[in-house]
Structure formats: structure tokens, C-alpha cells
Design a protein around this nucleic acid. Structure first.
Lengths: 209, 209
DNA sequence: AGAAACTCTTGACGATCGTCAAGGCTTCGT
DNA sequence: ACGAAGCCTTGACGATCGTCAAGAGTTTCT
């Protein structure tokens, strides 16, 4: 076999790998929608397949088992959630503007992406019982923390203030506020979003001096 | 039937009711242990019965279905968790003492009761997907919030300071800190407890002025 | 003591789960 | 054009789930 033939075969192989990865991502997307709707405990492979355009058998063609599919879901979720506030950080020109933008963005996310966020909390909680996702969960949590830290840092910078809390504390605090608001939102309280915005703006002020 | 006979029958009936409730509580305790060990998604009725001294069929004698058993578990959990810091509040004689006691008590709870706490977060998360526990979960969350509020209030009182946050914000903030520490603790980080104590003490200071 | 009520076990049921093998159908390389 | 490889469906398997009925064992009442 010549080098030309080999490189062509590699190209083909790579194309197949890409198609393979593409379909994996497509199925993981369908799985994420099902998970966000039903939760980890009630999501079956057949239900996932029914929310896609394929039959349930195909899942075992692209994933060795259910755990591998769910791991792929977790990793796919990561990519879409850890840069949510970066544009706000880049665009804000004053501390008060950043505070307003950040708090309203969190409230908007609460209203728009509640199902996906309850899934995240569900998967993170699963990692408290099983080691399978734990590494991925910890990495996502770390990147979410860094995302929050960029906001808080920029806020202090714009206002000429110094930080009074660590990155871990800042993340945990906002995460707690969001999670509480999510429970109230899904319980039907219509002011959960606006309350969250007010609380986030208030707490952000206590993290700097 | 005479009044005497009736009152006796009532006494008997009440005794039976008590025995019935007693066994229900006993089975709910066994269920709580299993849930804390396996998590909501992986806990079956047969597994619960195996962690008790009875067979799996008895569960349907004391509970109409699985949901009623789990609801009983949630309510039983409540009674044991919403007065955890009240003695500390009653005993503390200065703000700094209360702060130290409260933060170390949270760290101790983290180390001693991690499995039960991950179960609480699991059940609370289930209520984001299903309405079945939601009312009970909201009530427990409310009572936990009041418990935290008593601590924060007493802290401000002892230090002659004014509060800068609402009860909801205070609860959400400490809950976020605890949840993050729980993840790190179960992931094997040995300093999760001491970090939590330091963070709680630090954040408590930012809630007053 | 015997009847009645309560308590618990056993074993089975239909449903649903994850998994996998067999086989069409499509796409591709030569 | 034809064989090969990749892709997907179908249908079945063993296991496990919640549920329930039948009945044995125990306690209680008269």
C-alpha cells in the first residue's frame, strides 16, 4: 500500500469517526432532553430513543452501555453551560451595569432553562451516590466556579473594590441562591425570578468591600 | 353497647393505631437507611425490606404504595433535622462563640451525617421533577430556613449588629456552602469539613453589619 | 377455648428495564 | 456492478421492578 492510499484511507476513517461522533452527539442531545424532562431516576433507554428519530437498539451501536451514554450527556451539557455569562463580563463598562446584567441574566436563565438546570442538579447529586460521573461533575463544577469568579472579579475591578470571599465561596453562594429559586420557580411561584435577581444583586455587593 | 364498652374499644383502637404507626415509623427508618446508602433512583422495596427484619410483602400492609412509603420517609427525616442547631443558639453567650459553635457544628454534621444529607438533596431534587413530595419538601425547606434564621438572628443580637440579608438569602447561602462541601467530602477531600467551617464563619460575618 | 382480627410470609403476576444477536437496508470502495 | 463495511431495526432474553392475593401464624376478645 502506497502512502497516498494510506492517507486516503485515513481520511475516510477520519470521516467515519466524525460521523460516528456526530451521531453520538445527536443521540446525547435527545437523551439530555429526555433527562431534563423526566429526571435521572425515570429515564430509560427506550424513552430516550423515542425522543429521537431512531429505535432503541441504536443506542447500543453508539454507546457500550447506559453509563457511557449518560457520561456523554454530562460532557455535552458542560460545553453549553460554562460560558453563559462571559459576554456580559466582556461588555459591562461599570460595576452597577455588570451587577444589573448578571442578576437579570441569572433570572432569565432560571425562567428559560429550568428543566436543564434541574437535570444538572440531579446529575450532580447522582455523583454523591455513584462514582461514575463524579470526575466529570467535579470538572464542570470547577468550570462553573471559574465562570462565576470571572464575574465577581470583574465586578470588583470595575468598582475599584477588593474581594472578601474566595472563588469557592462565591460559587457556592450563588449556586445556593439559584437552586432555591429553581425550587420555587418549579413550585409555581411567579416571582421566583425577580426575587432571584434582587438576591443576586444584593449578595454580589457583600462579596466585595 | 354501653359507653364503657365504647371507650374501651376506643382505647383498643387507639392502641392498634399506635402500634400501626410505630411499625410504619420503623419501616420508614429502614427505608431511610437504604435510601441514604443507595439514593432514590436505585432503592427498591425489596432492598428496603432486606435492610429491615421483615419481608418485602409487609410494606404493602403498612403503605398503600411506594410513594406513600417515601412520603413517610421524607416526613420522618424532617423531624430529625430541623432543630439541629437550636441548642447552640440557646447556649451561646457571645457572637464570636455562636459563630464558632455554628461553623464547627456544620462541619461535624458534614462529617457524621453525609449519607443522610445527600439523601435530603436527592429527595429535594426529585421534587423538581415530580409533584409527589413537593409540598413536604417545601415545608421542610421552610423549617430549615427558619432554623438558620434563628442562628443568624441570634448572632446579630449578641453582637449588637443589624441584619443585611433576608431569611431566604441566609438559608440559600449556607445551603450552597454545605452542598459544595458535601460533594468535596464524598469525593475524598479530607479538608472539606474544616474548609466548610471557615467559609461558614466568614459568610456569617457578611450577613450582618 | 374458640372465634375473630391482626400481622407477616410466600409466591406469583404483568410491566419494564438494560442488553444483545440476527438480519435487512444503505453507503461506499474497487 | 458487486462485494464489503457501516448503519439501523426488530425481537427476544433474563433480571428486576411494584403490586397483590392467598394463606399461615399470632394476638386479642368474648
Amino acid at each position: 500500500m502506497t502512502e497516498v492510499a494510506e492517507s486516503r484511507r485515513e481520511r475516510i476513517s477520519r470521516r467515519q469517526v466524525d460521523k460516528f461522533a456526530e451521531r453520538r452527539a445527536q443521540l446525547a442531545t435527545a437523551a439530555l432532553q429526555t433527562l431534563a424532562q423526566l429526571g435521572y431516576a425515570r429515564t430509560s433507554l427506550r424513552e430516550i430513543a423515542q425522543n429521537s428519530e431512531f429505535s432503541h437498539g441504536v443506542l447500543h451501536y453508539y454507546f457500550s452501555d447506559k453509563e457511557e451514554l449518560l457520561t456523554e450527556c454530562v460532557r455535552q451539557y458542560e460545553a453549553a453551560c460554562v460560558t453563559r455569562y462571559d459576554e456580559i463580563v466582556a461588555a459591562a463598562e461599570s460595576a452597577t451595569e455588570l451587577r444589573r446584567q448578571f442578576s437579570t441574566a441569572m433570572a432569565d436563565t432560571l425562567r428559560a432553562d429550568a428543566p436543564m438546570h434541574r437535570l444538572w442538579y440531579d446529575l450532580r447529586n447522582q455523583s454523591l451516590f455513584s462514582e461514575s460521573f463524579r470526575a466529570d461533575v467535579l470538572e464542570i463544577d470547577q468550570r462553573r466556579q471559574e465562570m462565576i469568579w470571572r464575574v465577581v472579579n470583574r465586578y470588583a475591578e470595575l468598582g475599584g473594590m477588593t474581594l472578601t470571599a474566595s472563588a469557592g465561596v462565591a460559587y457556592a453562594v450563588f449556586d445556593g441562591l439559584f437552586q432555591r429559586a429553581l425550587l420555587h420557580q418549579l413550585a409555581g411561584r411567579e416571582n421566583a425570578g425577580s426575587e432571584l435577581a434582587a438576591n443576586v444583586a444584593s449578595v454580589l455587593g457583600t462579596l466585595v468591600a
